[in-house]
Amino acid sequence: MGFKLLSKLLVYLTASIMAIASPLAFSVDSSGEYPTVSEIPVGEVRLYQIADGVWSHIATQSFDGAVYPSNGLIVRDGDELLLIDTAWGAKNTAALLAEIEKQIGLPVTRAVSTHFHDDRVGGVDVLRAAGVATYASPSTRRLAEVEGNEIPTHSLEGLSSSGDAVRFGPVELFYPGAAHSTDNLIVYVPSASVLYGGCAIYELSRTSAGNVADADLAEWPTSIERIQQHYPEAQFVIPGHGLPGGLDLLKHTTNVVKAHTNRSVVE
Rank of each mutant, 00 (worst) to 15 (best):
N149H: 06
T36M: 08
L106N: 15
Y231S: 02
S30T: 08
G123R: 03
P221M: 11
G158W: 07
A179F: 02
G131T: 07
E157G: 14
I17C: 05
G246T: 08
S181V: 03
L127A: 03
P23E: 07
P190K: 05
Y188W: 13
L106E: 13
S264T: 07
D118F: 15
G123W: 03
I227Q: 04
E145C: 12
S193E: 08
H154Y: 05
Y196H: 05
D118S: 08
R120T: 04
E101D: 13
L81D: 00
L106W: 12
A98C: 10
V146G: 12
Q235G: 07
I104C: 00
E39N: 06
V237Q: 00
S38M: 13
A144V: 12
G122D: 14
R46V: 13
G32M: 11
S223H: 04
F63W: 09
Q49K: 14
F236E: 09
R120G: 13
G148I: 04
Y196N: 01
E172S: 07
T86M: 03
D79S: 13
S16Y: 14
M1E: 05
E147L: 12
L159P: 06
A218W: 10
Q235S: 14
C199T: 02
Y196M: 09
T109C: 05
T114K: 02
A215Y: 10
V189I: 06
L249Y: 04
V237G: 01
L217C: 05
V108W: 03
A218E: 11
R167M: 08
T14V: 12
H57V: 03
V187Y: 01
A133Y: 15
S62M: 12
A130S: 08
L10S: 07
L250E: 02
L6Y: 09
T253M: 01
L96T: 02
G131R: 08
L81P: 02
V212Q: 10
R110M: 05
V171S: 03
G78C: 07
V108Q: 01
L81G: 02
S160N: 15
P190H: 05
D214E: 10
L13D: 04
V194A: 06
I74M: 14
D77R: 04
I224C: 02
D214G: 10
G246I: 04
F63C: 12
K4H: 08
L156I: 06
G72F: 04
S155H: 14
H252R: 03
A94G: 13
V54W: 02
G210A: 14
G198E: 03
G123N: 04
L83M: 15
T14H: 06
D85Q: 00
L127Y: 04
L10V: 07
N184K: 01
P176N: 00
P176C: 01
G169D: 04
H117R: 01
E99D: 14
N149A: 12
N149M: 15
T86Q: 02
H115S: 00
A179W: 04
H260V: 09
S191T: 11
N255S: 09
H117D: 00
I186V: 08
G148H: 09
V124S: 12
S162V: 11
L81K: 00
V132C: 05
H230S: 09
R128C: 04
H117M: 00
G197H: 01
G32E: 09
L83I: 14
V237K: 00
E44N: 15
L243Q: 08
S27K: 09
T261D: 06
I50W: 14
T114R: 01
E219N: 06
L156P: 04
E44C: 13
L143K: 14
I224H: 01
P69W: 11
Q229H: 15
V266C: 04
V45D: 03
F26T: 08
E219F: 15
D77E: 09
G122F: 04
V266E: 14
G122Q: 14
R46E: 07
G43N: 12
A66M: 12
S7D: 15
H241N: 01
S162N: 08
D118E: 10
G131N: 15
I100A: 09
M1K: 04
A19W: 13
T182K: 11
T253L: 01
T60Y: 05
P35F: 06
L73R: 01
A129K: 11
F168K: 03
H180M: 00
D248W: 07
S160Q: 14
G2T: 10
A90E: 11
S205N: 07
W88T: 00
S30A: 11
R46A: 14
I186G: 02
G32D: 14
E101G: 12
S139E: 09
V42S: 13
E219K: 10
D248A: 08
G242S: 03
R110K: 08
R142L: 13
Y175C: 02
A19P: 05
I20D: 07
H230V: 13
S193W: 09
V42F: 15
L185T: 04
Y12A: 13
V124C: 10
Y68G: 11
T254Q: 08
H57N: 03
L247M: 05
Y135P: 00
I100N: 02
D29W: 07
A200S: 08
T207Q: 09
A51M: 14
A179P: 02
P190Y: 05
D119V: 02
L73S: 02
S31P: 11
V132F: 02
I224Y: 00
Q229P: 04
K4L: 04
T222K: 09
D214A: 09
Q229R: 13
P138C: 14
E233T: 12
I74P: 02
L73V: 09
V121L: 06
A192L: 07
R226V: 14
V45T: 09
I40G: 11
L143H: 14
N211A: 12
A130M: 15
P107N: 15
M18S: 06
S137L: 10
Q103A: 07
T254W: 07
S193H: 05
K258N: 10
V212G: 12
A213E: 12
A213Q: 09
A213H: 07
G197V: 04
A215V: 11
P69M: 06
L185I: 10
R226F: 11
V237R: 01
A213K: 09
D216P: 05
D125F: 12
K258L: 09
D214M: 08
N255H: 05
L143T: 04
S7V: 12
N255Q: 05
R128S: 12
G53N: 07
D77S: 08
K258W: 13
A111S: 15
G43Y: 07
Q49H: 15
I201V: 08
T93Y: 00
S16C: 06
T261Y: 05
G169W: 03
L47W: 02
G197S: 02
V28E: 08
L82T: 10
R110D: 11
L24Q: 06
S208R: 11
D125R: 12
L127W: 01
L127G: 01
I186K: 00
T140C: 03
F168R: 02
V256G: 02
K4P: 15
D119G: 02
E99F: 15
H57W: 01
T253W: 00
G177R: 01
Q235E: 06
L127C: 00
V28P: 14
I17P: 05
E147V: 12
G158A: 10
F168P: 04
C199K: 00
T60M: 09
S155Y: 15
N211C: 04
